Amino acid sequence: MAFTEKAVVFLVMMMAAFQISHAAVHKVGDSSAWTIIGNIDYRKWAATKNFQVGDTIIFEYNAKFHNVMRVTHAMYKSCNASSPLTTMTTGNDSIKITNHGHHFFICGVPGHCQAGQKVDINVMKVSAAAAPTPTSAMASPVPPAANVPAPSPNNASPFIVVKGAFAFSALAMALLHFLLFLPLHY
């Protein structure tokens, strides 16, 4: 393989490693999960996260007592579960975030949303050069109701240590591959 072809392969591997290193899995409520027991503040939980396109959000809960409903901003604010956009009931629901914006979820069991079982997953928009916007609508943002401001974005720091470790190891493997197969002469 010619040197320029190897350089192109190296660059493609580096770009793939960079993209892979940014996906994270977030379990809503962390060890407390999706519940009304323990007065979990899901707003505070979400504020500690740096959600990005490609991340996966996991709702773990007892399906006998809870569910997950994706709703509009207005429904989220008023805890209105009458006509959700989607309803999940497995007890272990996984949602891949495919675009930026606010993604609103509530528990539709009467009284649970009012007790605080609701979460706004705010995926910040990044520059077009860093991540193109996918066209999938699985977790498309819901525009807020007219004249109702959306919640302000959080300033939580990203999981740099974990992402950095994955990115570094991928970089090291790609560099090793490049050097091992580098021709000794042109």
Rank of each mutant, 00 (worst) to 15 (best):
S21A: 15
S32D: 14
I121N: 02
H22P: 01
A7R: 08
H177C: 09
N154R: 09
D93L: 04
N122D: 05
V25P: 07
Y186D: 11
H177G: 09
L179I: 12
V12E: 13
M15D: 11
F10G: 07
V123I: 12
A128S: 12
A165K: 02
L11P: 00
T90M: 05
H26N: 01
P84V: 00
F51M: 05
S31C: 03
F51L: 06
G29E: 14
N154C: 05
L179E: 05
T4L: 11
L11C: 09
P132I: 06
A7P: 00
T135F: 10
Q114C: 03
K27M: 09
E5M: 06
P143I: 07
I121T: 03
T98H: 09
F104H: 00
D93F: 04
A145Q: 13
I40V: 15
L175E: 08
S127V: 02
N62V: 14
K125H: 01
T135M: 11
S169A: 15
Y61V: 07
L175K: 12
A167L: 15
T72A: 04
V161I: 11
P132R: 13
V28F: 14
A17F: 11
G54D: 12
L182A: 04
A33R: 15
P183H: 05
V119A: 09
H185L: 07
C113G: 11
T87C: 10
V8P: 00
L171T: 15
N80K: 08
T48P: 04
S31G: 11
S136V: 07
A17H: 07
M124K: 10
N67S: 15
F65P: 00
Y76A: 08
K27H: 11
R70T: 09
I20P: 01
N154L: 09
A7S: 06
V162Y: 10
M13V: 06
A24R: 14
T35I: 10
T133Y: 03
H73T: 07
D93V: 09
A115L: 08
I37R: 10
A17T: 13
H177F: 14
A46H: 00
K6G: 09
S136Y: 14
F168Y: 10
T72L: 03
P158T: 10
T89P: 00
K6S: 06
P144I: 01
T35E: 02
S78G: 08
I121E: 00
I58R: 13
P143S: 05
A139Q: 06
G101F: 00
S21E: 04
A145P: 03
Y76V: 01
Q114P: 06
N155R: 14
P134Q: 04
E5A: 12
G116M: 00
N67E: 06
P183R: 08
Q114R: 12
C79P: 02
K27L: 13
L182Y: 14
V161C: 03
T4K: 07
N122I: 07
Q52A: 15
G116N: 03
D93A: 00
S94D: 05
M13K: 14
G111W: 00
M88C: 01
A139Y: 01
M1I: 04
D41I: 03
A47K: 04
K64D: 12
P149V: 09
D120T: 04
H112M: 08
R70S: 13
N50K: 08
Y42K: 02
K125Q: 07
A130Q: 12
A165W: 06
L180P: 05
I95W: 02
A23W: 13
L182G: 03
